[in-house]
Nucleic acid binder design. Structure first.
Lengths: 298, 298
DNA sequence: ATGTGGTATAGATCACCTCTATATCATTAT
DNA sequence: ATAATGATATAGAGGTGATCTATACCACAT
């Protein structure tokens, strides 16, 4: 059959009109070139070059072939360049799934860094609840996802990325509550400021209460963690937030953390990919960066 | 370095999403495919396929590569088709040089046959005098030429194709001249009907006279052999024509050939190509045909 | 458990590409 | 003429890497 390597030899020979020069370019010897072209001509049943005393020259048929081969090669050359570019992270695409909350507070800060380092990489975010996100991940619509733990799925490779520690915080108005330890019932009877219904955070806190047979109805229900903290500071009640987010306020005394008889279990955020798929170069790089930055502390 | 054969293996694998199938298509074994793709991935420093439990699937980078490779291959495929077509004489080009006279009386009848057999082959004719034609042949502007012999040129390969025998003919009016043998001087004093100045035929006949120190001025000078014969038939004088052309008139008694003391040397028509160039498939076929037909007698 | 359908790995083999050496040929210089 | 130069072609030896066989391994379905 026809050996594709022959095309490369043919191409160089046609360009240099000289077997010896072509051989030099290809880092092989002149007889090898001569041999390859002979093979080719025999395989095609056509003469491709005129053998002149001072080199070779394409025949009519050879010229016809060269037109195509040249184009074909420039195509393959572009391919090499494109792949190199993908490898150098000058282009590419990452499709990430996460909840609105995680997109805003975990992903966005990291993404900025990533995007300014690799401006050519296109980021596609899709938001949704964890079950929805995992489905899209399994369907191949997204490359990786940030999910709330615990989550088990045989098709997915999930690793814990960062641990969220939650707490109830109050403003100065409720300062005295923070001096002693509260039971869950006591907490449930406070005016509560919670994340909106259906969010992972809300589900988590409701389950915590439910474990003691308590059901709660928040006085205030909000969609953003900043607002939760703000209402707490203003003394509207106890807000359920992740501790790291209100760290500064706790230090400066604008907010107070409630001590609890039954400690809240830490919640984990995991990073999930399909077990049977390798990440693209771009996604791989992204994961590396996320991992490095998060291990230094969120 | 990168082996172009790998592309073929990559391509088949990508199309079938299955190493085993690709191997079958390529008439090699599955491990060979596995090995080749591994080589390729290592050379590129990129993973090209996801290995799934039920086959393989292109990665993002693999898809990018496939786009190019697929195009590149369809290009090479077109090349094969084109060459095949050239070989089958479904297309191609022949550039032929000849004098006006030879184009009309030697080439045209043959060309019709050739052209109806191979309608896809483009014929390019260029006309000119033999020295001009041979120059164009040596410059590579034409592929082959019909020339008047004798002609010697170290760069050209010339073979005699057909022998033209010339003669002087007269109409009934001069019938009695044909009964005896004439000297050249007698002929030179007849009213002569000759081909136009500069043509090979004219040069030939002038040289024949010049060899005896005679110079001639024709009474009638014409550009086509039909007209020469016609004027002779009408009794305007003696026309110098090739015998084969007036064969019929000689038999039917419309024309009479003059007998000469000094016989005219037969003139040869030769076929010339460049010694260092091989003819294209189309031209080769043309030469074959011309040779075969002419050897059966013009 | 077992079978099925896929890929990966190990080690042996062999085809064929590449090499060296030399022939041959045309052109150019001496 | 003769030699030198710069090409390609050919012959025969050799080595390398693609290919093969055999087998392991893995996921999934039965």
């Amino acid at each position: 059959m026809f050996n594709l390597e022959w095309y490369r030899i043919f191409w160089q020979t046609a360009r240099h009109r000289n077997l010896t020069k072509a051989a030099g370019e290809l880092h092989i010897t002149q007889p090898s070139v001569s041999y390859a072209i002979k093979q080719m001509e025999e395989a095609l049943g056509l003469r491709l070059f005129h053998r002149l005393s001072k080199g070779v020259e394409l025949t009519e048929e050879g010229r016809a072939l060269f037109e195509y081969v040249d184009q074909s090669f420039s195509m393959l050359d572009s391919a090499q360049k494109h792949l190199e570019s993908l490898k150098q992270l000058n282009e590419g695409e990452i499709r990430i799934g996460a909840s609105d909350y995680l997109i805003k507070h975990l992903l966005l800060p990291q993404l900025n860094t990533f995007h300014s380092t690799y401006p050519g990489i296109r980021i596609r975010l899709s938001h949704g609840k964890t079950p929805d996100i995992t489905k899209r991940l399994k369907d191949g619509e997204i490359d990786c996802a940030f999910v709330h733990m615990p989550l088990h799925d045989p098709l997915l490779n999930i690793q814990t990325l960062v641990v969220l520690e939650d707490c109830f915080v109050v403003g100065e108005a409720y300062q005295e509550l923070a001096s002693r330890s509260l039971t869950m019932r006591e907490v449930s009877e406070l005016p509560l400021i919670l994340f909106s219904q259906g969010s992972s955070t809300r589900v988590f806190v409701e389950q915590w209460f439910a474990a003691k047979g308590l059901s709660v109805t928040p006085d205030i229900e909000l969609g953003s963690i900043e607002l939760l903290a703000e209402f707490a500071r203003l003394g509207y009640g106890a807000a359920f937030v992740s501790r790291s987010f209100v760290q500064e306020d706790l230090h400066s005394g604008k907010l107070y953390e409630l001590k609890l008889d039954d400690p809240l279990l830490p919640r984990s955020i995991g990073f999930a990919v399909r077990r049977d798929r390798k990440l693209s170069v771009a996604a791989e790089q992204f994961v590396q960066m996320i991992g490095a930055r998060l291990s230094e502390g969120l």
